[in-house]
């Protein structure tokens, strides 16, 4: 996972397989990527090839935690892949803004 900051929004990029084995290692780092002064967080899944229910639940948990602090979550999802299908099935859009690219997500949160 890599985190870049664009003004007051962090962009956490995840690549490869976002599964139950990886999630435990990523959980704290993802939650810790949000700084006190930030407006929100972008999770960039452009490079992710796989996400299971544990990965999905981490995204929901992240959205919930951010909402408690009046912050917003935007998720960048590659179109037409498995990740896209999975996140549609679980309706991630109900808790996060979905964007096809990072620029759109940043514009939304900025």
């Amino acid at each position: 996972m890599r985190v870049d900051y664009h003004d007051l929004v962090g962009v956490a990029s995840l690549s490869g397989e976002f599964d139950l084995v990886q999630v435990n290692a990523l959980r704290d780092r993802l939650l810790g990527a949000v700084r006190n002064e930030d407006h929100g967080l972008v999770v960039d899944l452009s490079g992710a090839t796989y996400i299971d229910s544990v990965g999905v639940s981490l995204l929901f948990e992240l959205a919930e935690r951010l909402e408690e602090r009046q912050l917003r979550l935007a998720v960048v999802i590659p179109e037409d892949g498995l990740v896209d299908r999975v996140l549609r099935i679980v309706n991630l859009a109900s808790v996060a803004a979905i964007h096809p690219n990072v620029d759109g997500a940043l514009a939304d949160l900025g």
Binding site: D52, S53, V54, V56, I89, V90
Partner: peptide, 14 residues
């Protein structure tokens, strides 16, 4: 938990 509920949701959706 929500986790396994989502697991079932994914099995059905896919």
């Amino acid at each position: 938990g929500a986790n396994r509920g989502r697991g079932m949701m994914l099995m059905e959706g896919l």
